[in-house]
Design a protein around this nucleic acid. Structure first.
Lengths: 262, 262
DNA sequence: CGTTCCCTTGACACCGATCAACTCTGGTGG
DNA sequence: CCACCAGAGTTGATCGGTGTCAAGGGAACG
C-alpha cells in the first residue's frame, strides 16, 4: 500500500519503499534459492519488470478463457488462482505471492483454464512471451531456475490435494499457514514468524474446501491453543513447531535448493 | 499382462501384442494431439523406449525420497502418485496411464516428494536423464510437446483440487471417470466409451478424498441411474452426456491441441 | 476347498454445512 | 463529529453428507 516515496526513507518499513523494481527482487530471491545465479542472471530478471500494471483488490487479473498477450508476474500484493464450479461455489487452487508467475503456461496451452484474481491491490509485471521463452537460451541457469519454480508449483498443488483430501479442518488451516510462512520467508517477507496475510476467512475457506463459518471456528481453536495470532491482515505464528506438528507439515515438497537451506 | 508373443497374432486383442515398443505409441499418440510431430520426432520418441522394466501390481515403482537415476515412462498398466499422511491414510494425487511420465522433475528437484505405485502389473521405460534434457535441443517441436504434457498435468492437478474441495461424492466419482475417459481416449485405449479401469474402490477413495465404503455406495447410485457399468475392472459409460452433466465436466483443462479436436 | 482380496450392507457417530442473526470495524458523507 | 453503511467476523441451532465400525458375501487363486 505504501507506495513510491522517491527520496525520503521511511525508517519503519525500509524494504517496502525501494523504487518500483523492488517487487522484482522477490523473484530474484526465490530463484536464488534454487540456482546459483550470476549477477547477470539477476539483472536479466530485473530487466523483465520494466512494464508494470496495477490492479485493485477483488478484481480479476486474468479471467478464465482469456488468452493474455503477456506473461504476468506478481510484484506486490496477493493473488489467487480460482475456478468457479457449476453450483456457483468457488475453489482457489493457489495463492500467488510476490515473485510468482501467473500464467507461464499460456504461450503453450493457448488459453486460461482458470481465472486469476487480485486479493489485494497488486502490482504485476507484464512480460512479452518471447522474452520468457528466449531466456533459457541466453541464460541457461535462469532456464533451470524457472523450470524449478514451475515444478515446485506443481509440488504445491499435490500437497494441496493431500491437504484437502485427507486432513481435517484444523490441520488444513495449519498446513496452509505453514506453507505460506515458508513461501513468504523464501521471498524475504517474514520477520519474527510474522507476515502479512490479507485473506478473508471466506478466501481461506475457498482455498481449503471449507465454509467461512467453519474456518472462523477453526481459527478460534488455533488461537485458543496459542498457536497463532491473526489480526488485521497479519499472521503471527507463536509456536512454529507446534503448528507444523499439528499440520503434519514437512517442507520437503518446496524443494528449497541447497543454497537456501538455513 | 499378455506379453510378447513374437510371431503369432492373437485375434482378440491385436493392439496389445505388438512387439514391445507398443506402449510407446501411447506417448506418441498423446503428444501428437498437442504438436505437429514429424516422423523423425516420433522416431525419437520410440527410441526412448529401448530399456523396459516390468513391475508387479501393488508395488512401488519409486518410493518417496528416492533419487531415481532414470526418468520413468509408463508403457503399459496403471500407476499412481501418492503421499502417505501422518495418520497413516493415503492420498493419491494422480493416476498414471500409458504414455505418462512418472518423474520428469527429478533431474531438477533432486528427490521425489511423493511415491509412485504400480496399480497393475506395469511396463515402464527407463530413460537416462540427459536423453530427455537434450531432446528439446535436437527436436524443438518435441520439447514443446513435452512442455505441453507437463502443463496439462498441472492443469489436471488443479482440477483435482476443485473436485475434492467443492464437489460431493457422486459428482467427484463422475468427474474422475470423465477425466479418465478423456485421457484414455487420447492415448487410444477407449472403444465404445468403454475402457479398462483396474482400480479398487479403495484406490478410488484414496484419489477422491473419500472412504471405500462411501465410494461403494456412490458407485451404486451411478449404476442405478444408468450412467455407468463398472465390473471386472472395466468401465462402460452408458450416458456420456449425463455423466458429464452430473460431474460438471468441462474438458477445456485438458487442452487438447487443435489436431486432436474431433 | 480354504484363504485372501474385494465388494457390499447396516447402524450409528460426527465433522462440517447451512441458515440466520448479530457484532464489529473502517470508511463515507452529511 | 457523528450517523450510517457495507463488508468481515462471530455465534447458535440444526441438518446432512461421510466416516466409522463391524459383519457378511463372492470371486479368484493356490
Amino acid at each position: 500500500m505504501a507506495a513510491r516515496q522517491p527520496a525520503r526513507v521511511d525508517p519503519i518499513e525500509p524494504v517496502r519503499i525501494k523504487p518500483h523494481p523492488a517487487g522484482c527482487e522477490r523473484l530474484v530471491a526465490k530463484l536464488s534459492a534454487a540456482a546459483d545465479l550470476a549477477e547477470e542472471d539477476k539483472e536479466a530478471l530485473r530487466a523483465l519488470c520494466s512494464q508494470v500494471r496495477e490492479f485493485a483488490g477483488k478484481r480479476d487479473i486474468i479471467g478464465e478463457g482469456e488468452k493474455p498477450e503477456n506473461v504476468h508476474l506478481m510484484l506486490e500484493g496477493w493473488g489467487a488462482r480460482y475456478k468457479v464450479v457449476e453450483d456457483g461455489s468457488r475453489q482457489i487452487t493457489a495463492f500467488l505471492l510476490p515473485g510468482d508467475f501467473c500464467d507461464v503456461h499460456v504461450p503453450i496451452l493457448g488459453e486460461m483454464d482458470h481465472g486469476i484474481l487480485a486479493l489485494t491491490a497488486a502490482k504485476v509485471a507484464l512480460i512479452a512471451h518471447d522474452r520468457i521463452t528466449e531466456l533459457p537460451r541466453k541464460r541457461p541457469e535462469l532456464g533451470r531456475a524457472l523450470w524449478w519454480a514451475t515444478l515446485v508449483d506443481e509440488a504445491v498443488l499435490r500437497s494441496w490435494i493431500v491437504n484437502i483430501g485427507r486432513r481435517e479442518a484444523a490441520q488444513r488451516v495449519a498446513h496452509l499457514f505453514c506453507e505460506l510462512h515458508a513461501r513468504m520467508k523464501l521471498v524475504g517477507l517474514v520477520e519474527d514468524d510474522q507476515f502479512d496475510l490479507p485473506l478473508t476467512q471466506e478466501v481461506i475457506a475457498d482455498a481449503l474446501g471449507l465454509t467461512p463459518v467453519h474456518v472462523n471456528r477453526t481459527l478460534q481453536h488455533l488461537r485458543a491453543d496459542n498457536l497463532i495470532v491473526l489480526k488485521g491482515g497479519e499472521l503471527t505464528i507463536l509456536d512454529v513447531e507446534g503448528l507444523k506438528r499439528l499440520a503434519g507439515f514437512d517442507d520437503n515438497y518446496l524443494h528449497r535448493g541447497l543454497l537456501a537451506r538455513e
